[in-house]
């Protein structure tokens, strides 16, 4: 049985490797196998655990705001906790086949494992960054709860948190890809294509999986009551109506 200090040393060592981008570099893994302990499985479990943790924190809004009891709110926390890793991993699964075929066509099949590792590591980085923002999220929930527009502020803060974590994860992805790009500049095109496909699917996935926070005025449910909508159609309709207002 491992002691607590060993476990925490391993955990922080892994987090360090994910955030520094060191683990995804094939050159390091080739010269010094002992250093790259992180496997795809580890990265996937980081996404699961840290995503679950942030989602749970995200979903406790109504209870923190004293608008619902904790005995009811646990269900929303569970839903939100499941939804964050679900969002990240289903988007990955939907976007992966086309990325695989494109890599094969561009002659990058041999390094596909490294590409996948770089991508998963960046996603592990995304949820670690999110989780590091969880205390701020809770702090904001507590401090805005007396205000009338508290729920909107909570949604806004989460949008800021997800947005900044995504930007940081994209920088991490570029860093993870640096070694691959050095070997073959076609990887630069590939990583851009990946970001495009992933964002295209991910935005709609996030829209479908709403509510993430759970408005205190609505019943707790996994999906919204109203039928699914398309995020892009909604956005263009909003822009259209805004232009109508000006015109």
């Amino acid at each position: 049985m491992q002691s607590l200090s060993e476990i925490s040393a391993w955990t922080f060592g892994t987090i360090d490797q994910v955030l520094s981008g060191a683990s995804a570099s094939p050159a390091i893994s080739k010269n010094n196998r002992a250093q790259s302990k992180i496997r795809l499985r580890t990265a996937a479990s980081i996404v699961l655990i840290a995503g679950l943790a942030y989602g749970t924190a995200m979903g406790c809004y109504a209870a923190v705001a004293n608008q619902r009891s904790w005995s009811e709110q646990w269900l929303q926390m569970l839903f939100s906790g499941v939804k964050v890793p679900l969002l990240i991993l289903t988007t990955l699964l939907i976007a992966l086949p086309s990325f695989f075929i494109l890599n094969t066509l561009f002659g990058l099949r041999q390094q596909f494992n490294e590409s996948l590792k770089a991508i998963l590591m960046a996603q592990a980085g995304l949820v670690i960054i999110l989780l590091s923002l969880a205390p701020i999220t809770l702090f904001i929930y507590v401090s805005v709860s007396p205000m009338p527009q508290a729920y909107s502020l909570a949604v806004l803060w989460n949008a800021v948190a997800f947005g900044s974590a995504s930007v940081a994860a994209q920088l991490l992805l570029q860093r993870n890809y640096r070694q691959l790009i050095r070997q073959d500049s076609k990887h630069r095109v590939m990583v851009r294509i990946w970001i495009f496909i992933y964002a295209f699917v991910g935005i709609q996935m996030a829209y479908v999986l709403r509510p993430f926070i759970g408005s205190p005025s609505n019943e707790i449910s996994f999906f919204r009551e109203d039928p699914f909508q398309n995020a892009y159609v909604k956005i263009s309709q909003l822009i259209w109506s805004a232009m109508d207002l000006w015109g």
Binding site: L93, I94, A95, P97, S98, F100, I101, L102, I197, F200, V201, Q204, M205, Y207, V208, P227, F228, Q229, N230, V233
Partner: peptide
């Protein structure tokens, strides 16, 4: 290979 993306959008877009 783009089929899953189409299926997902088809399922969630009226």
């Amino acid at each position: 290979s783009l089929g899953p993306i189409l299926a997902f959008f088809s399922a969630s877009t009226p």
